[in-house]
Computed example of a mutant assay.
Amino acid sequence: MSAKTEQEPAQEASKDERVAASWRLPLTLRGVARYRLGLTGGCLVAFFVLFSFVGPMVYQSNQNDVDTLNALLEPSSDHLLGTDAQGFDVLGRLMKGGQISLQIGFFAALIATLIGTLYGAAAGLAGGKTDAVMMRFVDILMAVPFLFVALIVSTRFNPSVLSLSLVLGLFSWLVPARLVRSEVLSLRTRDYVAAAKSMGAGKWRLVLTHLIPNALGVVIVNITFQVADTILAVATLGFLGFGLSYPETDWGGQLSSGVNYLLSGYWWLIYPVGLCLVGLVLAFNLVGEALRDVVDKRRTV
């Protein structure tokens, strides 16, 4: 057999891998900006990031000491969104709560994505009985009420940004695992995977070098939805009274405190934090939808 004939499978596999890699990282501003809703979501995410992390540098307020003498003040030039029942500036409180929501959202999403991607890729590559057992384990965990477990953990340990990120991340990897496993089942039949196997590549080399990189489109799209779901989960825990402890705060806790004054006319304790929560979750969902459209289009090319 000639050298040219031996190189043909490798060349075809290389070409196939380049085609797969053409949509590997669809996270380009040009690709997302073609979708108006995606561009809107991206602008909203950027706004909330600047609002939460840069805002406190511009609009400084006391967020550590209770000031009951200035409690429940109406919006004014001194307090643009008034004060709450503890005398904290509401606008400054919103900025601090936004920091917590974004930090936990991103940390938990990264943890869940890392675990779920490795687990799903390993299950998809293994196939057969191993894959069946691994995915039945995922099904069992998905049957466990997440909120119930989170509440138990929150009562046993003092909630913090790190602990909530770990808890939410460790119970949110199941969806990414299923998505990546489904993608790997399709990718493992490609020519470049067969070529890598024939050259002696081990399973973990196949997973890390060939399968996961070509499944990154699905993985990155899922991250945006993971962040949105985590922000909602943090708000739910805070609203139920199992969120962060003073002086830390989150939007769910602020919303829970404001509900008590809803009928008293203190609208600034309810509507601003509610709009922030809805706006941030909606922003990440819009970005995720746009990215999913970009990935789907490139996969059909």
Rank of each mutant, 00 (worst) to 15 (best):
V180I: 14
N285E: 05
T236L: 10
S2D: 13
E12N: 14
V90H: 05
S165K: 05
L147G: 00
A3D: 13
K4G: 07
K15Q: 14
G116W: 06
V281H: 02
L216C: 13
F157D: 00
L151T: 09
I231E: 03
A85V: 11
R292A: 02
L244I: 08
Y266Q: 13
C43T: 11
R36V: 06
R181Y: 05
A196K: 09
L69W: 08
P247Q: 01
L282M: 14
T249H: 00
I223S: 04
G38C: 07
G241K: 02
L80T: 09
T300F: 09
P75R: 11
V54P: 00
A215M: 09
G116D: 10
A150K: 00
G217P: 12
G116A: 12
L206T: 03
A195K: 05
A201H: 02
V19I: 15
L166E: 01
R18I: 05
V287S: 03
F106I: 15
A143N: 05
L277N: 07
A177D: 07
D65W: 03
R36L: 10
A150N: 00
L244A: 02
V184D: 07
A71V: 10
A233T: 12
V66T: 15
I270Y: 04
A196F: 03
L125P: 02
K129M: 14
D65R: 13
G41T: 02
V149M: 13
G241C: 02
Q7A: 13
G128H: 15
V167F: 11
S76W: 06
F284A: 08
S256F: 12
F53G: 06
